[in-house]
Amino acid sequence: MNRSRLMAVVQRELLEIRKNRLLLFTIFLPPLLLTFLPLALLAGMGSMGTGNMRPEDIARLQAASPELARYAPSEVIQLLALQQFLLLYLMMPLFIPMTVAAFSIIGEKESRSLEPVLATPIRTVELLLGKSIAAVVPAMLATWLAYGVFFFGAQFVMTARVYAGLLNPMWIVAIVILAPLCALLSVSLGVLISSRVNDTRVAQQIGGMIVIPLILLGMGQLAGIILLSALTFVIGSLIIALLDAAVLVLATRMFQREMILTRWK
């Protein structure tokens, strides 16, 4: 792989994204909006105490997870909600770059800029990886920015003990390592889909399904089937990294220059 050609693709894609202000707006605004909502809910929970939850239910939860025992009942509620909200920051990098990724190949085909690129010595893997990285970068910047806002705002709406939960290594692994890997998986799939269908809408619809596994993860956690921990996230990161590599290889193999140039109209 030629690093210079790869970086040329990444930088050109980023330049185009930067010049499209509306696109930038749609990348950065939803994560920020989605950050204020959990903060408001956490603030509300803090003032509501345990709400509708019965003390015996909380006691049962504390018995099941000994680490919850040191928290007051209202804090347990906040802590559980916090875990759900943090899953949101794993979901963001999945859906934010999907539009960019889904448009990546079809868009170039539609604007007819793909043929001159394919006539250069660029390798398919350089083109696809470059496009994927360029879609991941703004998505991760938006996610980290939103997380930063959440991290800053959370100290004002929760107790110091619950807030300390944000510094749990589990979430650091999730936000710093797992989230970018998930984003790369999402965009690689998006680029693969984009190179196999000839309609942007179809690519986006198919790409949207990427969030389903994460929703299942969240539901599994709520149902107590899956227990989130630093180890879960490290193992998850390794699996996702392998999937990233596999999808990139698959996308490169499935990228048919001839079909894209001659059959797509």
Binding site: R12, L15, E16, S111, R112, S113, L114, P116
Partner: peptide, 8 residues
């Protein structure tokens, strides 16, 4: 077709 990047 020229196939240029119009925004650049």
């Amino acid at each position: 077709s020229p196939g240029l990047y119009e925004k650049l």
